[in-house]
Design a protein around this nucleic acid. Sequence first.
DNA 1: TAATTTGCTTGCATTTTGCAAGTTATTTTC
DNA 2: GAAAATAACTTGCAAAATGCAAGCAAATTA
Lengths: 136, 136
Amino acid sequence: MDTEPKKRVSGCPVAYGLDSFGDRWSLLIIRDLMVHGKKTYSEFLGSDEGIATNILINRLKTLEADGILSKSRDPDNRRSFTYALTPKGKDLAPIVIEIIRWSGKHDDRPSALKPAVRAVEEDPDGFEKRLRGACD
Amino acid sequence: MDTEPKKRVSGCPVAYGLDSFGDRWSLLIIRDLMVHGKKTYSEFLGSDEGIATNILINRLKTLEADGILSKSRDPDNRRSFTYALTPKGKDLAPIVIEIIRWSGKHDDRPSALKPAVRAVEEDPDGFEKRLRGACD
DNA sequence: TAATTTGCTTGCATTTTGCAAGTTATTTTC
DNA sequence: GAAAATAACTTGCAAAATGCAAGCAAATTA
């Protein structure tokens, strides 16, 4: 595996969070697991934002090494692997939800997508349960 | 001003949030404003994590351009400027809080700092009000 | 008036990201 | 059963972002 970004040592909880998932791609992978029910390398690769293959595999390995997701073989297809959120990964749901709320309030671009924003506002607890459960 | 990182165009609220503050430093500056009451360039520069001067000024300008913080002259010192969170910036408080909670639960390093974690758990609403008010 | 402080800028090396083109081990299709 | 397709990567290289160190001008303090 090639190198992962260096981690800071300040002890600050915000810095720990940023060291774990504070980059351009990690939370999008986690979003795909939670919101879109994606589970495999090629599903993640197909997302709208267009992550590069080497970055994707690096993030998957780093997130696995950090205990945020787990990897297992697909029992039905020997060349396929299934990624799932661990409990530590599922605990990111409130962060994802608050980002969705913030963007829902402040993203004024016409292209802004609002379905998830509406789902959060209509039933926050149900939405969180959905995010935690979608990746089992 | 030198170039700011490119923004994505997917319309996804999670991607919009990451484009706005999803890098190694932005949320640490916002933490300094909210949690530590810092307001000036040199106060941000003094934080434990050790941001470089060119990165700091770049992030301050980008966050200002994105409407997350505002810059004004210090009336008492003509070479000093005061940075403050806008309403859009203050609305990041719930995200910061959820990151603190997540790290408080999952950072097992002996060096992990817990005061803010305890403050959040003891009085979440009061803590959020403090974060929103500390930067006026 | 000589430091010192504040808020920057600049140049350059290192690290990370992004793109494109492989590669290998399975399935699928014909 | 051979050929094509698919899934999960790997590799090489260019571009962009980050990090480090040294400066610099205007305002303030000693």
